[in-house]
Design a protein around this nucleic acid. Structure first.
Length: 646
RNA sequence: GCCUGGGUAGCUUAGCGGUAAAGCGCGUCCUUGGUAAGGACGAGAGCCCGGGUUCAAAUCCCGGCCUAGGCUCCA
C-alpha cells in the first residue's frame, strides 16, 4: 500500500456534468491526462470553479474543472498575460531602476504598470521590437513555488512587489514565480509554456495609472498592449477600432455640423448648431407626443435655485460636490443638477385630493453636474445636459399601474430606434436617505412589476439613487456596444422632505409617492448614441436634410426649385452649384441625405422626377405626388431606413 | 484632479529653429454636364493663450487653457 494521501480519491466535475475521479494530490494537468493524453499535452491552464489557475494547481474535491487549451478564449487571456511579462522583460532590458507593479491581461489585451519609467510613444516601437526578439528567443516559461521568506529576498529591489507579497503572506497563500530567460516575476499565472508560443504583440499606448487605482498613491506609467495568436486576428482588432472611430460622434458631429464644444464656451458645454438642433427637436417632439398621450402636463423651472431648495431636497448634503454653487450677495445659489426638487415645489404649491392623482409633470430640463474634468468626453460626458424628465405624484395604490405605463413608453421609444435592451433593478446604496422600511417597500414594488411582466432583469445591489431604488434600461447599438438609457426611479424620500400631501377618501392627509422617469435619459447621450448607432445616416424623420434636389444642368434650376416647393413641410434643399451631376451626387452622399431627387430635361418635359436613395438605388419617371405620399408615410411611421426604392 | 499624446486656413492634416504648406470646402471663370470627385485661377492662418531662450520660435523651455485616451479587469 502506498501513501494514504495518494490513496485517497477525489472527484471533479467536468463541463459536460460528468465526474472524474482522481488522486487527492492531482493537478489540473493530471486531470487532463486522465481524460486523454492528447488533451493532457495540450493543456495550458485550468479553470477551477470559474477561476483561471495554472495547470500545476492542485484540484480539490467537488470542484468544477475546465481544461484550457490552445485556441480557446481563456487561452488568449493566458497568452496575453505572458505577453505582458515579455513587455516587462523588454522594459527592464532597455531601462534601469524600473520598479515593477502589476501586469494583468484585460478583455482587449494586457497592460503592465511601472514606476520610475520615463517613456514616450516613440519608444514603443523599440519595445515592440524587443518583445519580438524575446518571442523569437523562445524562452521556456518556468513556474516555481517559493516560501514567503525566499520570495522576500528575491524581491528586495521591488517595493511594489514586496507590498503585494506581504498581503499574500498575511493571507497565508502559496507564492509562485514565473521565470523566462534572465527575467522573473512574482505572479499567480497561468502562463503559456514558452515565449515562442506568443503570437503577435502590439503595444497600443501609454497612460498614467495610480498604484492600485487610488489617487492617494503614486502615479505610475502604464503601457497598454494586445496580443493575438496570429496576424489576421490583430488586423481584425485594428479594423474594429477603426470602425468605432469612423462612427465617433465627435467626428460625425463636426462633419455634419451638428454641434461644437469650443474653447471660449468652456468644457463639457456643447453648442447645438441648426442641423443638430433639428434632430434634437424631432426627438423632443417624439417624447412630447408620448407624454401627451400618457397624460403628462408640461412645466418649466429655472436653471438656478437658492440653496435652500437643495437643503430641503437633500442634494446639498448628498450631491454638493457635483454641483455648481455660488454666492449672489448674501444668498447662496446652485445650478440644478436634477429637476425633481423644482417639480416637487410646484406640486407643493397646491392642495390636492386623492381624486387628482396621479399628477404627471414633464420638462425638458437642462441640468448641470460638475463632473471631474478628465471624465468629460464629447457629448457622452458633459457639464450641461437636458433630461426628458418626468415626475409623477401618485397614491401608493397607483404605483404598479404607473410604473407599467412608463415601461410601455420606454419600450415604445427603444423599439422605435430598433435598439435591443436589458433591464436592471438597482437597490439601496450606502449613502442614502430614508428608513429601511421605506426602502424595502419601494424595492418590493418595482420587483413585483418586473416579476408580473415576466421580464428578465439583473439585480444591481447598492446601485440605486440616494433617494430610492430604480429600474435602469441599457441598450445595445449597431456595433454591439452597450449604453445606459432610460430609468424609472421610485422616491419615498422627496415627498417627505417637501412635506407633500393629498387628502384621501378618509379626509386625512396622506403622503404621495414620487416617481422619476426619463425615456431617453439625457438628450446629449442619446443623441451621441444615435449618431454612432446610425453612423450619421439618420432615418428620414430625424435627418437634418431629408431630400436634396439635384438639377442636371443650370437649365433645370427653375424646375428644381418648383419640385422642391412641392415638398413643402420637408427639409429639402436644392444643389444649385455650378458642378457636374457626379459631384452633386457625391456631395449629397457625403452629407448623408436620405433621398436625392434628380431632375434634367427628361423629367422637366414629363413633369416628374428621378429618385435616388442613400443606398444608391435609383428609379426614373417617378410621379411627384407618389414620392411625397411615400415620404409622409415614412416620416410618420419613423421608419429606420429610406425604403421608397427597397 | 493626476498621467501620456494633441491644438497650424471652415474641415482633415504636413511642417518641428531661417520667407507658413497640401487635400477637401468656399469664390470667380471655362465647361451645361444623365448617376460616387471635369478644368483653370483665386480668397482664406494673432500657427490655442501668456512668458522665456535665441540674431531668428509654429518649431526649444516654463506656466495656463482646451482636447483625446487612461487612472485595479488586482501577484
Amino acid at each position: 500500500m502506498s501513501e494514504p494521501d495518494s490513496q485517497q480519491r477525489i472527484a471533479v466535475v467536468l463541463p459536460d456534468g460528468s465526474e472524474l475521479e482522481v488522486d487527492a494530490d492531482a493537478t489540473v494537468e493530471d486531470c487532463a491526462y486522465e481524460i486523454g493524453p492528447g488533451l493532457g499535452s495540450d493543456t495550458v491552464a485550468g479553470k477551477l470553479d470559474g477561476e483561471l489557475v495554472a495547470k500545476e494547481a492542485a484540484v480539490y474535491d467537488g470542484a468544477e474543472l475546465e481544461i484550457v487549451t490552445d485556441g480557446s478564449e481563456e487561452y488568449l487571456r493566458v497568452m496575453r498575460h505572458s505577453a505582458s511579462h515579455c513587455l516587462a522583460q523588454a522594459v527592464e532590458r532597455h531601462y534601469d531602476d524600473v520598479d515593477l507593479a502589476i501586469g494583468p491581461p484585460t478583455d482587449e489585451g494586457f497592460y503592465y504598470d511601472f514606476d520610475n519609467l520615463d517613456v514616450d510613444e516613440e519608444d514603443l516601437a523599440d519595445l515592440e521590437r524587443e518583445i519580438e526578439e524575446i518571442i523569437a528567443e523562445d524562452y521556456e516559461i518556468e513556474r516555481e513555488e517559493l516560501s514567503v521568506d525566499e520570495a522576500r529576498d528575491r524581491l528586495a529591489d521591488e517595493p511594489y512587489k514586496l507590498e503585494l507579497l506581504e498581503e499574500l503572506a498575511d493571507e497565508g497563500q502559496q507564492v509562485t514565480f514565473y521565470k523566462q530567460g534572465e527575467w522573473e516575476d512574482l505572479c499567480a499565472g497561468p502562463h503559456v509554456d514558452s515565449t515562442g508560443e506568443i503570437g503577435v504583440v502590439k503595444l497600443l499606448e501609454i497612460a498614467g495609472a495610480y498604484w492600485r487605482g487610488d489617487e492617494e498613491n503614486t502615479m505610475q506609467t502604464r503601457i497598454y498592449g494586445t496580443a493575438f495568436e496570429d496576424e489576421s486576428d490583430l488586423e481584425e482588432f485594428v479594423e474594429r477600432k477603426e470602425e468605432a472611430e469612423k462612427r465617433d460622434h465627435r467626428r460625425i458631429g463636426n462633419e455634419m455640423d451638428l454641434f461644437s464644444i469650443q474653447d471660449v464656451t468652456g468644457p463639457g458645454l456643447p453648442l447645438y448648431h441648426p442641423a443638430g438642433k433639428t434632430v434634437l427637436k424631432e426627438l423632443e417632439d417624439f417624447v412630447e407626443s408620448l407624454n401627451q398621450e400618457a397624460g403628462y402636463d408640461y412645466v418649466e423651472t429655472p436653471h438656478v435655485f437658492k440653496t435652500d431648495l437643495w437643503h430641503r431636497s437633500g442634494h446639498y448634503e448628498n450631491y454638493a460636490d457635483d454641483m455648481f454653487i455660488f454666492d449672489v450677495g448674501d444668498d447662496e445659489f446652485g445650478l440644478k443638477p436634477m429637476n425633481c426638487p423644482g417639480h416637487a415645489a410646484i406640486f407643493q404649491d397646491h392642495s390636492w385630493s386623492y381624486r387628482d392623482l396621479p399628477i404627471r409633470y414633464a420638462e425638458n430640463g437642462k441640468v448641470y453636474r460638475k463632473e471631474q474634468r478628465g471624465e468629460l468626453s464629447g457629448l457622452s460626458r458633459v457639464w450641461a445636459f437636458t433630461i426628458d424628465d418626468g415626475h409623477l405624484f401618485i397614491r401608493p395604490d397607483q404605483i404598479e399601474r404607473e410604473v407599467e405605463g412608463i415601461m410601455d413608453m420606454i419600450t415604445d421609444v427603444l423599439e422605435t430606434f430598433d435598439l435591443e435592451y436589458e433591464m436592471a433593478l438597482a437597490t439601496r446604496p450606502e449613502k442614502s436617505v430614508g428608513s429601511d422600511e421605506i426602502w424595502d417597500r419601494a424595492e418590493e414594488q418595482l420587483e413585483s412589476v418586473l416579476e408580473k411582466r415576466n421580464l428578465d432583469y439583473e439585480l444591481e445591489e447598492g446601485d440605486g439613487a440616494f433617494y430610492g431604488p430604480k429600474i435602469d434600461f441599457a441598450f445595445e447599438d449597431a456595433i454591439g456596444r452597450s449604453w445606459d438609457g432610460p430609468t424609472v426611479q421610485l422616491d419615498f424620500n422627496m415627498p417627505q422632505r417637501f412635506d407633500l400631501d393629498y387628502v384621501g377618501e378618509d379626509n386625512e392627509e396622506h403622503e404621495p409617492v414620487m416617481i422619476h422617469r426619463a425615456l431617453y435619459g439625457s438628450y446629449e447621450r442619446f443623441f451621441m448614441m444615435l449618431i454612432e448607432h446610425y453612423e450619421g445616416n439618420f432615418p428620414l424623420w430625424l435627418a437634418p436634410e431629408q431630400v436634396r434636389v439635384l438639377p442636371i444642368s443650370d437649365g433645370n434650376l427653375g424646375y428644381a426649385h418648383r419640385v422642391a416647393n412641392e415638398f413643402d413641410g420637408f427639409r429639402v434643399e436644392v444643389d444649385d452649384r455650378d458642378s457636374t451631376l457626379e459631384r452633386k451626387i457625391r456631395a449629397a452622399h457625403d452629407d448623408r441625405v436620405p433621398y436625392q431627387i434628380i431632375v434634367g430635361d427628361n423629367e422637366e418635359e414629363d413633369g416628374n422626377i428621378s429618385v435616388r436613395d442613400r443606398f444608391e438605388d435609383q428609379e426614373y419617371d417617378v410621379e411627384i405626388e407618389a414620392f411625397r405620399d411615400h415620404l409622409e408615410a415614412e416620416r410618420e411611421e419613423k421608419r429606420t431606413e429610406p425604403d421608397f426604392l427597397q
